[in-house]
């Protein structure tokens, strides 16, 4: 059996965790792409490329950054909004969908306006999201969501994790600070400026 790679799904109903398949977390200064440990800068370039090539690039901010519970959260929120603005200016189809909390929402959620960790696939399917990034989601809920997404959708997942990273994402950063998110914004700007990645929706975006 070949080495396991964390790739976009749909993999299977209830896929095993990537950790069970031998994927390990990156060390400080590193990230991983499809389970391969790489330098963080390489991961940033790849994440920027995936976002710019996506038809519906989406940022999912979680409770740790949606709620203004400390100064750091507010700074991260500013950086995340800047990231979204960069994506939106490249591709008007970009989305910013919140995950305000983790409670199961019954009888239904509105997949147009929010994502829930207990059935994230509904939001992915409804909005036809092909690349997404989780940021500010507590690790255990992020792992749950990332696994469900990998199991049931073909969405490429990126985790901007404030702790040790996520094996279950296709690309993961670790130790996310406001500065690191800004660094990623810069990586996106740089990739955009290179002109290599055309807007996949073919829409001309005029500069304001």
């Amino acid at each position: 059996m070949g080495k396991y790679r964390v790739l976009p799904g749909p993999e299977a109903f209830l896929p095993p965790s990537a950790a069970c398949a031998g994927i390990v977390l990156p060390d400080p200064g590193q990230g991983h792409i499809n389970g391969e440990i790489v330098h963080e800068d390489v991961a940033m370039e790849e994440a920027a490329k995936q976002f710019l090539m996506a038809k519906v690039p989406t940022v999912f901010p979680g409770p740790l950054v949606l709620w203004n519970w400390n100064e750091k959260a507010a700074k991260k929120a500013t950086a995340i909004k800047a990231l979204y603005d960069e994506l939106k200016s490249h591709n008007p189809g970009a989305l910013l969908i919140p995950m305000p909390d983790y409670r199961p929402k019954y009888p239904k959620i509105n997949p147009e306006v929010e994502i829930n960790p207990n059935h994230p696939n509904l939001t992915i399917w409804h909005n036809k999201i092909d690349v997404c990034m989780f940021v500010g989601v507590h690790c255990h809920q992020a792992n749950l969501s990332l696994k469900i997404i990998r199991g049931g959708t073909n969405c490429y997942t990126i985790a901007m994790c404030a702790q040790a990273g996520h094996e279950d994402a296709m690309l993961s950063f670790r130790d996310a600070t406001p500065e690191k998110i800004w660094k990623f914004v810069e990586a996106v700007r740089k990739a955009k400026a290179s002109g290599v990645y055309a807007n996949p929706n073919g829409v001309t975006v005029s500069k304001a």
Partner: peptide, 18 residues
């Protein structure tokens, strides 16, 4: 005072949270 939404995300939060 502890239950505030970050300014940048206020408009995208579902109405029940606002």
């Amino acid at each position: 005072e502890k239950i505030k939404i970050c300014e940048e995300f206020y408009d995208i939060m579902p109405p029940e949270y606002r």
